[in-house]
Design a protein around this nucleic acid. Structure first.
Length: 614
DNA sequence: AACTTCACG
DNA sequence: ACGTACGTGAAGTTT
């Protein structure tokens, strides 16, 4: 038996590493006693984050309580792996920090189904996020084990992740190669592996006490664990990639990027990503740049370059000037590079053994509670179908996408009791058209509807005249009068915003959403409370839809949540029925305001919902 | 590490 | 008193 001692919060704790059969017997004895006393904390160390990449290994499984941790050498197989698997099956309730990751690791590599472990899990990251969802960079505590331990357990608790980086270097390894390459019996590796479960075990009771103090309801905690499990199931399933399509697409886009890069180089721009070079070269061609970035540099983003290339927002020729060839080349080189490398080639480089990608779904990522997804799957170009065409439904299936209808605006109508909005929604009206009619009268044009939509978003997001003018491209005078009219038509919005700000200030700068989610405000931008309330509640509307869909037996078809949309892969012959059923799951009242959804049944690829013919 | 850009809702 | 666009992930460049 290898044993390590360490002091945490004034207590001497022990990390045990069983090596012999007798050592493993002692682990069993400890486990039998410890599980009588309470939940067991669980953690894993693995070769990396890419759980589904061929060659991935589970290295250790750690179990522990507040005083003892046992690091099981899973990588050795045999008795070690056997004891880990049995312990996970029989240990009852478990505490895991950021459970999604360990659920999927243990499901894929230790024969412990997610369906078995998830219902027994308390995730300390969820507990902590419900107390303060902010990252340290946003002024919060942070949601990693290190900052939370420092705040709630012991300010001197070691940064086990950062601490290992230096051990990696000592072994001639890097951040990338360290997790797979560090010798299994490295003492720092084993100690830190053990300390993580001890810290998790100590975190849970403190966070529970804080929940009681703040009045965070157990129902909210339960709800978040259900959502996390559903998201983990979707991540485990992943998405099928059309390799015969994505591979040549990546090649074609790489050639295109290279062609335009060479064109830009002829004007002295050797790096199209260098804003300074682009600005200087454009100035040398007689163009005048006026827009500046926050730090004062000349701005050379898409909004600046498109007009110089005589292109509108949809990249169509305007015909107002001679296109600047450098602006055109920079725009096209950057787009082709991004689409090719981040998306097409990105998919190809992340395939599992079955040609699937598994973007990580973080169910509670943003400070508003919104989800986030890795590998660019939330950011695929929607103006064109070429990239989404690379994502396929299963063989014999079609893609079904169901969107909430104007969900953030409906949430606003519900939360702020916006009378005219509620009436319009109840009457089944198109909200943006309704607003346009209220502002411009019955003869409003489609352009007026578009401006109304822009103003609505501007309102919800807290934008002012300048930004809305820039975003909508509408004349300033028109936006100005529309904004004034908007406040007359929907006077409740401003009143609700100031009420929410007052409540937040009285509650330690924390707005509490209707589900009980705590949303800390930044002191100098309390106006953001309107957006936080809408974005956060819209996220919970999505969460409710996910629960409804699982209850309706649709989980096996669900693939990806995208804020106000749920993407599915459905057997072609059932698609129409499942689409109707999905709409029903996404339709329910929110404080008397109907939330509605519209399903679209596509073809085999995701791109088919964006105009592709397959 | 900070900044800038670009992709999305 | 007034007005403030919100939230992400990923990559490249510069410091």
């Amino acid at each position: 038996m290898r044993e390590f001692r360490h002091d945490i919060a004034g207590d001497r704790v022990t990390v045990h590493v069983p090596e012999t059969a007798e050592d493993l017997d002692r682990f069993r004895e400890w486990l039998d006693r410890a599980r009588e006393r309470g939940p067991i904390a669980v953690d894993t160390e693995t070769t990396g984050l890419d759980i589904y990449r061929p060659g991935y290994r589970l290295r250790t499984v750690q179990l522990g309580d507040a005083h003892d941790a046992w690091v099981l050498l899973y990588e050795r197989g045999g008795e070690h792996a056997q004891h880990a698997r049995e312990a996970l099956q029989c240990c009852g309730h478990v505490l895991i920090h950021n459970a999604n990751f360990d659920w999927l690791v243990l499901d894929e590599h230790a024969g412990t189904p997610l369906e078995s472990l998830a219902p027994r899990t308390v995730d300390t990251r969820i507990l902590a996020t419900l107390i303060d969802p902010r990252q340290q960079s946003e002024g919060g505590i942070g949601t990693g084990l290190k900052p939370l331990s420092a705040r709630w357990v012991d300010p001197t608790a070691p940064d086990t992740q950062a601490g290992l980086q230096s051990v990696f270097r000592a072994h001639g390894l890097t951040k990338e190669t360290g997790w797979a390459g560090i010798p299994l019996m490295d003492p720092t590796f084993l100690l830190y592996a053990g300390l993580d479960v001890i810290l998790t075990a100590r975190l849970e009771p403190v966070l529970r006490r804080e929940h009681s103090r703040l009045g965070i309801r157990p129902e909210l905690v339960q709800y978040e664990h259900e959502i996390a499990r559903i998201c983990a199931v979707m991540q485990r399933r992943g998405l099928l990639v059309d390799q015969e399509y994505a591979e040549p697409l990546a090649r074609r886009l790489a050639e295109e990027a290279e062609r335009y890069r060479a064109m830009a180089a002829r004007y002295g721009v050797t790096k199209v990503g260098s804003s300074a070079q682009v600005a200087e070269a454009l100035a040398g061609m007689g163009e005048t740049l006026t827009e500046r970035t926050k730090s004062g540099a000349l701005q050379t983003d898409k909004a600046v370059l498109l007009p110089l290339a005589d292109l509108d927002r949809d990249w169509q020729r305007i015909g107002a000037r001679e296109p600047n060839p450098l602006a055109n080349a920079v725009l096209r080189a950057k787009r082709a590079k991004k689409w090719g490398e981040d998306y097409a080639q990105g998919f190809m480089s992340k395939l599992d053994a079955h040609g699937r990608i598994h973007p990580a779904i973080a169910p509670l990522a943003a400070r508003t509670g919104r989800m986030s997804v890795t590998d660019g799957l939330h950011q695929l170009p929607s103006s064109d179908h070429v990239v989404r065409r690379a994502i396929l439904a299963e063989p014999g299936h079609v893609k079904v996408s169901t969107d909430f209808v104007a969900v953030e605006l409906r949430v606003l109508a519900a939360l702020a009791h916006v009378r005219r909005m509620r009436e319009a929604i109840a009457a089944g009206e198109d909200l943006h058209a309704f607003t346009a009619r209220m502002v411009w009268g019955p003869d409003f044009t489609p352009r007026h509807r578009k401006v109304s939509k822009g103003i609505s978003f501007g309102k919800v997001y807290g934008g002012g005249l300048d930004v809305i003018v820039r975003q909508t491209g509408a004349p300033e005078a028109e936006v100005r009068s529309a904004l004034a009219a908007y406040d007359r038509v929907y006077p409740e919005i401003k009143r609700a915003a100031s009420r929410w700000q007052r409540q937040a200030v009285a509650n330690g700068m924390v707005y509490v959403s209707p589900v009980g989610r705590r949303l800390p405000l930044d002191r100098d931008r309390t106006y953001a409370v309107t957006n936080y309330a809408c974005q956060s509640t819209a996220r919970d509307v999505l969460g409710q839809a996910l629960l409804n869909m699982e209850a309706a037996g649709l989980l096996e078809y669900m693939r990806l949540p995208i804020h106000d949309e749920i993407l599915m892969s459905v057997p072609a012959e059932d698609a129409a029925d499942v689409a109707r059923e999905t709409e029903r799951c996404m339709t329910f009242p929110l404080f008397g305001v109907p939330i509605a959804a519209e399903a679209e049944v596509g073809g085999r690829s995701w791109g088919s919902l964006y105009g592709a013919d397959y």
